[in-house]
């Protein structure tokens, strides 16, 4: 009984801080997702180009990111760049690192979506005189978006979970805050469980949003 009541008291004391930390993780996630979409779209379009020179940087980006640990990428941005004179705050470094990482996966998702659109769609758009940019914006990408919402959701959830790696570069997000609470209270089980539940709540919000978004795109 005292076990339970002391559990509630301790958690209660730290819960507001955990929620703030969770909110920070969520903000980083949203910004990183936006960055990853931009990077992923550009990389996917480059990768489907018929010019080798255009394809190569995108190939390298995807190859490098997918073949190296996210934690190392985060360390390169936060600890490595200052050596070159680029000093970023933990928050900014975190958003960039997580966004760069996710962008490579988004690129592959978008590329898959582009390949799923039949060649006839491209040709009929070209045949009425559309430029490449107009065809992409009006004809191809609206169809791609529909196909890729499920894998994109998956990737967004991964991005959110990846923010916990930012605890290693002193971003006071949910994982780091939880570790500090544990250091002060010696209750690892209680706090990790609560942290897990908070992450679960956040990923559920993301998935729900994605489900709503997908339903908006249903035709007839």
């Amino acid at each position: 009984m005292t076990r339970i009541s002391s559990f509630i008291d301790t958690i209660w004391a730290y819960l507001p801080g955990m929620i703030v930390a969770g909110w920070l993780a969520f903000q980083i996630t949203v910004l990183a997702i936006l960055l990853s979409w931009v990077l992923g779209l550009v990389a996917a379009l480059m990768k489907t180009s018929s010019h080798r020179v255009v394809r190569m940087p995108a190939d390298f980006y995807i190859w490098f990111i997918r073949g190296t640990p996210s934690l190392i990428q985060i360390f390169i941005i936060y600890f490595g760049l200052p050596q070159l004179g680029i000093r970023l705050s933990p928050f900014v470094a975190g958003v960039i690192a997580i966004g760069l990482c996710s962008g490579a996966y988004v690129a592959e998702v978008v590329r898959g979506g582009l390949l799923a659109i039949s060649k006839g769609q491209w040709e009929s758009a070209r045949a009425v005189g559309m430029s490449y940019a107009l065809m992409m914006r009006r004809i191809i990408l609206p169809q791609v978006v529909r196909v890729i919402i499920p894998p994109l959701t998956n990737e967004a959830v991964n991005t959110l979970k990846n923010t916990s790696l930012l605890s290693a570069i002193t971003v006071m997000e949910l994982t780091l805050f939880t570790q500090m609470a544990i250091a002060a209270t010696f209750r690892p089980f209680d706090f990790y469980i609560v942290a897990a539940l908070l992450y679960l709540a956040l990923t559920t919000v993301l998935s729900r949003f994605a489900a709503w978004w997908e339903s908006k795109y249903q035709i007839s």
């Binding site: 039949s118 006839g120 769609q121 040709e123 009929s124 758009a125 070209r126 045949a127 009425v128 005189g129 559309m130 430029s131 009006r138 004809i139 609206p142 169809q143 529909r146 035709i219």
Partner: peptide
């Protein structure tokens, strides 16, 4: 592109744009 606007093309496989209604397909270009 300018030349193509003056040349209408109809394909074997129709290639209508599935995310646009019939009217939207016609007014798009």
């Amino acid at each position: 592109e300018r030349l193509r606007t003056k040349i209408g093309m109809v394909f074997q496989s129709f290639n209508l744009w599935p995310h646009l209604t019939v009217l939207e397909n016609v007014i798009e270009a």
